[in-house]
């Protein structure tokens, strides 16, 4: 299985995700600069965290217009698993691949801390090894991580089972405490917390297993059981 990691000017979690995919989960991974094309042989795409274009105008909005996004869109349409983490989530939202927007945290500050997530949808390529309601201890690190959508959209998200993760406790003012959502078909997932920072016990002060299941889900999706 080969995973494409999209790199924008200002991405800064690209190397972390590369390490986790290759060294921890033994997958093949390749970086793709935002001006390049994604080859069709890619089995999954990850948009890593960071500050693409320095978060100018609004987090993710400029990167959403990068040339590579059209390839991401066509792959998403074909059902290829796409995961956006933190800034990657913001880019997916800004490019219209996922509903809603991400606003400045109600604390008005950047927040870097370990929090608990609750799994709400275990029917995506990145959550199929998790249990519904399962708790995941994981770090967040963002200034614009407050998920917002109007009531109509929120209702639709609930009806179509598009809410993937919620925060255990109210944290940053997110609507319905949403931490991650997916598209209607479930193959495109965006989440604010950083699973790549939580899968190794050496740097995880809590339990690293639930976060690992996010990547093991991807392996299962590809038919590689660990």
């Amino acid at each position: 299985m080969k995973v494409g990691i999209v790199v924008f000017p200002g991405s800064n979690c690209d190397r972390d995700i590369f390490h986790v995919l290759t060294d921890v989960f033994d997958l093949e991974a390749e970086y793709f600069w935002h001006e390049k094309h994604l080859p069709s042989k890619i089995d999954a795409v990850i948009l890593p965290g960071g500050f693409s274009y320095g978060d100018r105008l609004r987090a993710g909005v400029i990167a959403a217009h990068s040339p590579i996004i059209s390839d991401v869109k066509s792959m998403a349409k074909k059902g290829v698993p796409v995961l956006g983490i933190c800034n990657g989530f913001q880019i997916l939202v800004e490019s219209g691949l996922l509903p809603g927007v991400l606003l400045k945290n109600t604390t008005m500050n950047f927040m870097c801390k370990w929090i608990n997530l609750i799994v709400q949808n275990n029917n995506t390529p990145f959550t199929n090894k998790l249990k519904l309601g399962q708790k995941i201890s994981i770090p967040i690190a963002n200034g614009e991580g407050r998920y917002f959508a109007d009531n109509k959209t929120l209702k639709e998200l609930q009806e179509k089972n598009q809410i993937v993760f919620t925060y255990e406790e109210s944290l940053n003012g997110s609507s319905l405490n949403i931490a991650g959502v997916c598209n209607e078909s479930g193959n495109v997932v965006g989440m604010m917390p950083h699973p790549e920072r939580a899968v190794e016990s050496e740097i995880n002060p809590t339990d690293n297993k639930p976060s690992s299941l996010i990547f093991e889900s991807l392996l299962k999706t590809a038919g590689i059981e660990k």
């Binding site: 500050n109 950047f110 690190a141 190794e200």
Partner: peptide
């Protein structure tokens, strides 16, 4: 908590 102290893993 305002500083990203985890990036770089």
């Amino acid at each position: 908590h305002q500083y990203d102290h985890e990036v770089g893993i």
